[in-house]
Simulated scan of single mutants.
Amino acid sequence: MAAAPPPPLPTQGLTPAQLAAFHRDGYLILPNVLSPATTAALLAETHSLLTSFDLASHPMTRFSTGGDDGGEHVGDDYFLTSGDKIRFFFEQDAVDPATGQLTKPKHRAVNKIGHALHALSPPFARLLAHHDGAGEAGAGAGAGAGEANAPAAAAPPSPAAIARSLGFRDPRCLQSMVICKQPEIGGAVPPHQDSTFLYTEPPSAVGFWYALEDATLENGCLSFAPGSHKWAPISKRLVRKQGNAGTEMVPNTGSQFPPGDEYSAANTNTNEKDTEYVPGQVKAGSLVLIHGNLLHKSEKNLSQKGRIIYTFHLIEGRDADRVYDERNWLQPPDGGFTRVYAATS
Rank of each mutant, 00 (worst) to 15 (best):
L55S: 03
F168S: 06
Y27D: 05
P123S: 08
Q281V: 10
P123C: 04
P226T: 11
G13W: 03
T344S: 15
E72K: 13
I308C: 10
A145F: 10
A211L: 09
A44E: 03
D170W: 11
S165R: 13
T216R: 08
H229F: 11
L302D: 15
T270A: 15
N267Y: 09
A205R: 02
S48F: 00
D321L: 08
Y310R: 01
R126Y: 05
A129L: 15
G26Q: 12
G142S: 03
H131Y: 09
L287G: 05
A109R: 07
R327V: 05
R24S: 08
R87Y: 01
D84M: 04
F197N: 01
I29L: 07
T103Q: 11
G26Y: 12
H130C: 14
I315M: 04
L49D: 00
A4T: 15
S345D: 15
A143W: 02
L238M: 11
A44F: 04
D325G: 01
N219E: 08
L198C: 05
N32V: 11
T11K: 07
V340K: 02
L287C: 08
E136W: 07
K300T: 08
A137W: 08
T216S: 12
D25L: 10
R164Q: 12
M60E: 01
T11E: 10
G186V: 12
Q281E: 10
A343C: 10
Y324K: 01
G67D: 15
E299I: 13
I315R: 01
K283V: 09
S176F: 01
S158T: 08
L174Y: 05
T196F: 12
D84L: 05
A20R: 08
S264F: 06
Q18G: 04
V323T: 06
N219F: 04
R339S: 14
Q18V: 04
K106R: 12
T51M: 00
V33Y: 01
Q193K: 14
F124R: 01
S223K: 09
R322V: 08
T81K: 03
G292Q: 05
F312E: 02
R126P: 06
G246I: 11
P157D: 06
R240W: 04
C180G: 02
Q18M: 06
P171D: 02
F88E: 00
A163E: 03
T311N: 04
E201V: 09
P59V: 14
A145C: 13
D170T: 12
Y277N: 03
P251N: 02
K112C: 00
F312Q: 03
D77H: 15
A160H: 08
F79T: 05
P16M: 03
P233I: 11
G114Q: 03
T253K: 11
V95N: 02
P10R: 00
V33G: 03
G285L: 06
D84W: 03
I162Q: 01
S255M: 09
P202A: 06
